[in-house]
Structure formats: structure tokens, C-alpha cells
Amino acid sequence: MIQELGKRPYAIVQLRQDDKQASLYNMVGFQTNLKFKEQKRIFSKIPGLEQAEFVKYGVMHRNTYINSSKLLDNTYNLKNTPNLYFAGQITGVEGYVESISSGMVAALNASDVFWDGVKKHQFSEHTVIGALAKYISTPNEKFQPMNANFGILPELEGKKIKDKKMRYEKLAKRSLGQNIANMREIC
């Protein structure tokens, strides 16, 4: 058992489990464009990684996205082109879950149009799904890809709650309470 805690480190490099067997770990936050031999040389200087085997080196890759703030509406539908939707990171949503979210919204509305000719899934901006759809489709001179975050949701009514966690809890409740119920109804 720990008798006494040691000093707080000056910095910590974290590795995150990458496969089910827990045999591979990725370096958290270490996306990089360094040359492979430089990665090997420099990252091996991190205490504990002197003999590290790199299964994969960090790479930079291209990203492609359209200016959705000008081009799309909040169902990920190209304005003035009723037959064409976009989904995934090409719309400027950033991240896996965000991509899934955009695929969901585009698909629900495309299905609506297929059967009835009318889009019915314009999600409330009180949900993260709806807030993201609204974010990417709102005119913005400096449009940049966006992750899910509470900053894109409308503020809570009433006095501002100072405690972040409590505020986020309220925002989550607001989304899941009333609005998801509505989502279900129209699905």
C-alpha cells in the first residue's frame, strides 16, 4: 500500500488503451506531423518509453469540408438542391459521434422526403444533435469544423448557474427531458 504520496510530476504523458487485449496504447494528444525517425528519436526520450516499440507513427492527413454555413440548412440539405444531402466530417462537424449525428439527421429527413415530400426532423437546438445542425448551417464568416460542446446550446433560462457541472447537468436534463420525447414522437 502507498505509505506516502510522492511529488506532483511536472508533466504527465498519458497513453490510452487502444485494443481489447490492452496490448496497444496510443499517445493521448500526440497527433503529429514529425518525420517517423524524429518521432522515434524524440518520443523515446519520454521517461518509460526508452525502449518503446512504435506500432504506428503519428500522421497528418488531409481534411476536406464544405462551407456548410453558407451551403446547408439544418437538415444537412444543400440549399436549392432538394435531392442532395451531406453528412459526416465533410459538413464541418468534427469527431466520430458528431459524424454519426449528422448521418442520422440527414437520413431521417431524406426518408421523410422520400415518403411524404416534406422534411420533418428539424431537431430542437436544445439538443446537441440540433445544436450541431444549427451551428453548421448558421452563416459564419470564419466557419471552422466543430465538436459537440455546450457552448453551441442556447443558455438556460433564469439566473446563470456558476457551477459548471450543475449547469451541464441542467442542460443535459433539458435536452433529454422534453426534447428527446419530441424526437421519439416524430420518428
Binding site: D18, S23, M27, F30, H61, T64
Partner: peptide, 28 residues
Amino acid sequence: KITSQEKLYFFDAAAPIIEKDSINFDIA
């Protein structure tokens, strides 16, 4: 062409992956 866009390319990046057995657990 369809969207009359000029700019479509940008960059992002991925992190290295390490074999656990090669990590020194005297330190880690």
C-alpha cells in the same frame, strides 16, 4: 463544382501507437 466552392482541403492528424510490453513500468 456543385457547391461553387473554392476551398475544400485542410489537415488533421493521428497519434502514434505503442506496444505495452515495450514500456518501462519502473517509471510508468
